[in-house]
Design a protein around this nucleic acid. Structure first.
Length: 343
DNA sequence: GTATGCTTTCGGC
DNA sequence: TTACGGCCGAAAGCATAC
């Protein structure tokens, strides 16, 4: 928090879509706001209703700024751990098995130093969960926020997890939770005892196996340093719902140029191009294609996006939001000149 | 049957 | 009563190749 005078006041970080003065959603909110039922993802207008007469601060999201904090903090983290896997702008898994020699008390010391280093550098607190697996560590770090440090040993794991609701499990969201609820599976403890035969028809083999293992604390997903971007996208909210490709393209043009700028800046080639549409009912539809040869050409985007967009609106009708995505990215190799090649 | 490629959808922050 | 962003990564679902 850069402005301590805001302490205790509900603070809402908002993404304004530009459609109307107030349209947009709450990206995140501080704990004072959360007590009033204001969570990330809810419409700004709804958040204002929940605020009522309560004095609050609404500030626009400044992603570049948060990105810089993130980079500095991730650097501090990296210096203190064996392996780090960043999973979002403000979250990472880390493995300190070797550094801690497998001892949770040694690990506690490392975690405390990480918290201290981050606070000294950025005046920011964080929550850390130390546990035998990623799933349990995530549950543990969520258990005491803000500014927590929770240790769950292998012996404590099952008892710690059992009473928690299934949607607290990493990768189990509202959709999966609703399916589980139909089977009367509400808690992680119940899920841990559910059979593969119950779960597989609902989720497929892979995910069913995953959530059973996760609930039992026996997932063996390793912490892996991820390198390189796998996709880049831009999406905008249209001034009004439209099924006119020319009108949508006119509004999308800056996003296309901006995405291309990013591709060039990151020295990438793309092979897959998608157009993303959000329908008036907020459901998502996409249309994509893969091209033969990886490219970084703006002209390729300017050819493909109208083509995919036209297909999408022909099938789906009017859109509320529209966007594009490039994927199947490869790092552009330093191109040697023809003379060098021949020479 | 298993591996691989591509499109589409979902979950998380 | 409704209200409604902008990204990311993973994998489901389907087709084809071996």
């Amino acid at each position: 928090m850069e402005n301590p005078s805001l302490k205790g006041l509900p603070v809402l970080v908002c993404v304004y879509s530009g459609r109307t003065e107030q349209s947009g959603v709450v990206s995140t909110a501080n704990y004072a706001a959360r007590e009033l039922g204001i969570r990330s993802g809810i419409p700004i207008t709804l958040a204002k209703k929940r605020l009522g007469d309560t004095k609050a601060m609404l500030i626009p999201m400044r992603h570049e700024k948060y990105e810089k904090y993130s980079q500095r903090i991730m650097f501090i983290l990296r210096e203190n751990v064996d392996i780090m896997e960043q999973t979002g702008i403000d979250e990472a898994f880390f493995d300190i098995t070797e550094k801690a020699k497998g001892d949770f008390e040694v690990a506690r010391g490392i975690a405390l130093r990480i918290k201290q280093d981050i606070f000294q550098s950025e005046t920011l607190t964080c929550s850390i969960g130390l546990a035998p697996t990623k799933v349990i560590a995530k549950l543990a770090s969520d258990f005491k926020k803000p500014n927590g440090l929770i240790i769950v040993t292998p012996q404590e794991a099952k008892a710690f997890m059992a009473p928690l609701p299934v949607e607290k499990l990493y990768r189990v969201g509202p959709k999966s939770a609703a399916l589980l609820k139909r089977e009367r599976i509400i808690s992680i403890g119940t899920l841990a005892n559910a059979s593969q035969e119950t779960l597989e028809p609902l989720f497929g083999r892979k995910f069913a196996t995953y959530i059973r293992n996760a609930a039992n604390g026996t997932d063996d997903d390793p912490v892996v340093e991820k390198e390189g971007t796998t996709q880049l996208s831009r999406i905008i909210t249209l001034k009004s719902d439209s099924q006119d490709a020319r009108e949508i393209l006119a509004q999308l043009e800056p996003a296309i140029n901006d995405l291309h700028r990013k591709v060039i800046e990151k020295n990438l080639f793309f092979r897959s191009i998608s157009v993303i549409g959000i329908l008036p009912n907020l459901s998502i539809r996409t249309k994509s294609k893969t091209i033969e040869t990886p490219t970084d050409q703006l002209s390729t985007l300017k050819m493909s996006v109208p083509e995919l967009l036209t297909q999408l609106i022909t099938e789906q009708g009017a859109l509320r939001r529209a966007g594009l995505k490039v994927a199947d990215l490869t790092e552009k190799k330093q191109q040697s000149s023809l003379a060098e090649f021949l020479g």
